[in-house]
Design a protein around this nucleic acid. Structure first.
Length: 140
DNA sequence: TAGGCCATCTGGTCCT
DNA sequence: AGGACCAGATGGCCTA
């Protein structure tokens, strides 16, 4: 925009219509870029909303911020990974202690795992979700 | 009213 | 050249 204005001012031989066409084109491209950026951010927000649906929430009404969503997703993945690791270790040594089915990890079911301690590991719940908040509560 | 969060605009950079 | 991505700036809205 600014460059166009200055170039138009500099080039005395340029006709006004040529300059206005140039500026018009610049404005049109800027508006198109803005629209693309809006659409891109909307896609990003849609992805955040989908992530929120599969991540533990603070409460019923409290919506996680983007930052909180990412932190919670990280903690949640680590917790699930810990569950799988413990299960594999147990299965190898003593046989299955946790019968894993994929449906257990649906959003309506995973809360029960979050409060579950692995055998002989009292601080499991704290380890699983290092990203804590006063408002956070595990729903049953 | 201050602070947090968010949407939008904008210019720069990289890639195709 | 044009699109995608990114980060900074800005202003609006909401809450403690």
């Amino acid at each position: 925009m600014k460059s166009c204005e200055s170039s138009c001012a500099d080039s005395g031989s340029d006709s006004d219509s040529k300059c206005s066409d140039k500026m018009e084109n610049t404005v049109r491209r800027r508006m198109a870029a803005n629209a693309r950026e809006r659409k891109r951010m909307q896609g990003l927000n849609t992805a955040f909303d989908r992530l929120r649906t599969v991540v533990p929430q603070w409460g019923e009404d409290k919506k996680l911020s983007k930052y909180e969503t990412l932190q919670m997703a990280l903690s949640y993945i680590m917790a699930l990974n810990r569950i799988l690791t413990d299960a594999q270790r147990q299965n190898a040594s003593q046989g299955p202690w946790l019968d894993l089915h994929i449906e257990h990890f649906q959003p309506e079911n995973y809360h029960s795992y979050l409060g579950q301690s692995s055998p002989g590991n009292e601080e499991y719940g704290h380890f699983a979700f290092p990203y804590q908040c006063d408002g956070f509560q595990i729903t049953n």
